[in-house]
Design a protein around this nucleic acid. Structure first.
Lengths: 121, 121
DNA sequence: CTTGAACCTCACATCGATGTCAAGTCCTAC
DNA sequence: GTAGGACTTGACATCGATGTGAGGTTCAAG
């Protein structure tokens, strides 16, 4: 599929998809005319990339991480280097802290919302 | 306390504390000489602000939210306007999505780490 | 006093993903 | 072939919290 359809199906802008290519995250084939041609599996990959971004990973980390994932299309997965594993363990710890933090904030918001919605403090 | 101590005790840079003041998030008193003088409660407030930032709230939202919180020092809490409540409900939904997303990413990282750490796929 | 650390203001830089605009090319349907 | 939508590259802008550096002031201790 071409970039417009991929953008529509993933909800990610064309701009961002071109950025992914620039960063080596998702490099599509090209038609003879030079237009990007994405395989079906690109949809899942884009969504995964967005998740990783949302989790605070940088594109540089993601580009090293991606080859280690077994995709839905059963691509062969490399083993992460010990260096990468160490970094991912850091990221995991960071994510755990972030989740705890988000839970706290969620409760704070709940309180404020409840208080304001009649059933006061 | 002065800004240096507050920075040390919260792990937040002096630069950021000055920014908080600029944004109206935490406005300290001033000594006759013009230096910032923070009350003890500022420590908790700074930590709360950081949590809210980490949860993706903008300083503009936080500045409207803060007066609605009952602080540890028992400050009187205003009721959120219905407009703010609606926005906070959006934020809460966003946070829920983010938590779900982080859980997914956490699992992905776990897989990669496990796979690379001997006990292969 | 004086010294040096801590503080002040102001301004500009940074980062990373994304928005946006311009000028040109490709592709599909007629 | 031709019109117009979809695509291309390239460059510059944005956002928000934070870093950084200059040049000057305040404070605490000797």
């Amino acid at each position: 599929m071409r970039i417009g359809e991929l953008a529509r199906r993933t909800g990610v802008s064309e701009r961002s998809l071109r950025y992914y290519e620039e960063q080596g995250l998702l490099v599509p084939a090209r038609t003879p005319g030079g237009q990007r041609e994405y395989p079906e599996a690109a949809v899942d990959r884009v969504i995964r990339i967005q998740e990783l971004f949302a989790a605070g990973l940088s594109s540089r980390k993601v580009v090293r991480l991606l080859p280690c994932l077994r995709d839905a299309d059963g691509g062969p997965s490399e083993n992460a280097t010990s260096r990468l594993v160490a970094e991912l363990e850091d990221e995991r710890a960071r994510i755990d802290r972030m989740i705890a933090d988000l839970r706290t904030t969620r409760e704070v918001l709940d309180d404020v919302i409840d208080t304001a919605s009649g059933r006061g403090a």
